[in-house]
Design a protein around this nucleic acid. Structure first.
Length: 211
DNA sequence: CAGCGGATGTGCT
DNA sequence: GCACATCCGCTGG
């Protein structure tokens, strides 16, 4: 529940190095390339400049832009989705079913739409770090980390803007693919293998058959 | 375990 | 009106 304060300058991975955010260039690439590379990365949530949660990403989905019938960008830069058309490395948040939030990392060069939905993470430090299922699902993830529409647009490449992504020394995890979850309405786009996850990991969401 | 239905607000047709 | 990149609690095997 509370962050450890026993060591002078602990990072949230349990190591000694200070975590550094991924660069904007990392996000400025094709969304389907960025998505699988996010698996195993650390998600660091801070409030008032102080890190309070960290988690390891174990499940993501790529949403490719205007041609992708499952993407919010398919209607063009509407007020809701305009962020997806802007510079990479920012956070796209939307409200789903009136009560949950989902968070995405904007990818592709400025002017081109694309984003990666973060679906699940393994809790490391912070609230509910003892429950491996606490962050298993995009709505639960945002609820546990306190991500809301107020965080829409924040800069993921800044260590002080509330949320960032970092690499640690953990080896790259195995990767599996499947169709994206909950996009049956999207025609042939509903079957494209744009969901990436760490197979067998206890924090992955969805039905058993897709873990 | 699977399969439903309710909660609840925004963005479209 | 209705669909929606969801979750939880309830039901029945």
């Amino acid at each position: 529940v509370t962050a450890p304060a026993s060591r002078p300058t602990p990072d949230l991975a349990g190591g000694r190095r200070r975590l550094q955010p991924l660069s904007r260039r990392f996000f400025a690439r094709p969304t389907e390339v960025v998505a699988p590379e996010l698996l195993g990365k650390l998600l660091v949530r801070s409030a008032a400049g102080v890190p309070v949660h960290s988690a390891r990403i174990v499940e993501v989905e790529a949403y490719l832009g205007t041609r992708d019938l499952a993407s919010h960008a398919r209607k063009g830069p509407t007020p809701r989705a305009a962020i997806m058309f802007g510079p990479p490395g920012h956070l796209y948040v939307y409200l789903i079913y009136g009560m949950y939030h989902c968070m995405n990392f904007v990818c592709e060069p400025d002017g081109q739409a694309g984003a990666v939905l973060i679906r699940a993470a393994e809790p490391l430090v912070g609230t509910s770090a003892s429950d491996p299922r606490a962050l298993a699902g995009p709505g639960k993830l945002c609820r546990s980390l306190g991500i809301t529409l107020a965080d829409k647009g924040l800069d993921l490449t800044s260590a002080t803007s509330g949320l960032f992504v970092a690499t640690d020394s953990t080896p790259a995890p195995p990767i599996a693919q499947s169709a994206r979850i909950g996009v049956d309405y999207a025609g042939e786009w509903s079957t494209r293998p744009l969901r990436f996850y760490v197979p067998g990991h206890p924090s992955v969401s969805g039905p058993r058959s897709l873990r």
